[in-house]
Amino acid sequence: MEISLTVNGAQHRLRLDDPRVTLLDALRQHLGLTGTKKGCDHGQCGACTVMLDGRRMNACLSLAVMHDGDAITTIEGIGTAEALAPMQAAFIRHDGFQCGYCTPGQIVSATAMLDELRQGWPSQMSADLTAPQFTDDEIRERMSGNLCRCSCYPNIVDAIRDAAEAPA
């Protein structure tokens, strides 16, 4: 079986002899894109967060074959070595990581999350479902799908706020 997968703008034709391969393992093992991490393989940590058409999702709970024809963005598609994305630079500045293992997932998630917020999506912390505010609690709630055992949460919140408020 062969699927076509656009990853970070580059089109890949991927031979899959086994439909059991998850999107996460396809990225890590078949395409060598190991920036997307595996912390639990069951949707419980967020380390594998990627974007599908700009929306964040856990790559571990999706099959690669389900994404034939899809466009995926991974951490490798955010910023470059020469020019880090503002979110990446903010994570460094605010020390939003320690071991770094949850970090790619945090950054992809945060990037997509800001977009959700811009579109006015509500969260459980929104007092008014129709007009969510950009509070720290909103950031915290929306980032709660990304666990960090080094527990850099306060720095992550600072980094996201900083990146969001930075002039584009």
């Binding site: 949707g43 967020g46 967060t49 929306r55 964040r56 999702m57 856990n58 709970l61 999706s62 998630s109 997509a112 999350m113 959700e116 509500p122 969260s123 459980q124 929104s126 479902l129 929306r142 709660s144 799908g145 990304n146």
Partner: peptide, 15 residues
């Protein structure tokens, strides 16, 4: 809306 938003995570709710 409230019930859905109380569940899982942003990533999971997107799928």
């Amino acid at each position: 809306s409230r019930a859905i938003l109380a569940g899982a995570s942003g990533q999971i709710r997107n799928r």
